[in-house]
């Protein structure tokens, strides 16, 4: 966003922060608060976006408890748990990257973000393996459902919720990885400093939100 060309390298080894926007002139603290607050409001919209799917899960689980029980047992617990651990760990590295960027250690932050992106990629790969398995079995939503091992009525409804919820989540993982890539490049250019690290923080917040959604999806889909 900000013009980087005009910014000079300080003695501490990072670029001088960009000027405060004109309408916040003289009050950088308010600007900092505004940027963070805006991100939290955006996260609230994301939470409400997923709310509808959780409501769908709750309704169909109430309607078809046996089918949901059977279907949950047919998900790969190993892959699901691995993915949970991957996402939690990537959240740690993102938090550490934020910590480093805030202290002007841009290179550390860069490598930590790179690791996080790699873990996000790993998550997607595992998800792809799971999806392939579902397609092979015919454990699919609606009229595509052809999975003989689920005998209770309502089996397809589990897979509607499963594919919508994990699909929307995977989309968020992809967006999150793109955001992390964007801030990682800026870390490489040593743009962040103790007074200017909002992009790392906000991209990190987004990534943690992706993590939060998965924290609920994992037990609901795989365990109970």
């Amino acid at each position: 966003m900000e013009a980087t060309s005009a910014r000079v390298m300080t003695a501490e080894g990072y670029l001088a922060p960009p000027p405060t926007p004109h309408h916040y002139e003289g009050n950088p603290a308010a600007h900092k608060h505004a940027v963070r607050f805006g991100m939290w409001l955006f996260l609230a919209t994301e939470i409400l976006l997923f709310a509808g799917l959780f409501v769908g899960y709750a309704v169909f689980r109430t309607d078809f408890p046996e089918a949901f029980d059977q279907a949950a047992r047919h998900l790969s617990l190993f892959l699901g748990t691995t993915n949970t651990l991957l996402l939690l760990t990537s959240s740690l590295t993102v938090a550490l990257a934020h910590h480093n960027a805030e202290h002007g250690k841009n290179r550390n932050a860069f490598w930590l973000l790179l690791v996080s992106i790699a873990m996000g990629g790993g998550f997607l790969c595992i998800k792809a393996i799971e999806y392939t398995e579902k397609f092979r079995e015919g454990a699919l939503p609606g009229r595509f459902f052809a999975f003989s091992e689920i005998t209770a009525p309502g089996g397809p409804m589990f897979y509607v919720v499963y594919f919508f919820a994990t699909g929307l989540h995977a989309l968020h993982v992809i967006v999150g990885m793109s955001l992390l890539t964007w801030v990682a490049i800026r870390c490489w250019h040593k743009e962040f400093s103790p007074t200017h690290y909002a992009p790392v923080e906000n991209a990190g917040l987004y990534w943690h939100l992706v993590d939060l959604v998965w924290i609920f999806l994992y037990p609901l889909l795989y365990l109970v």
Partner: peptide, 17 residues
Amino acid sequence: VFGVSFFFVATLLFFVL
């Protein structure tokens, strides 16, 4: 903001359920 968003998710869940 964070608390309120969860509150409204709970509201939606509660009435539909």
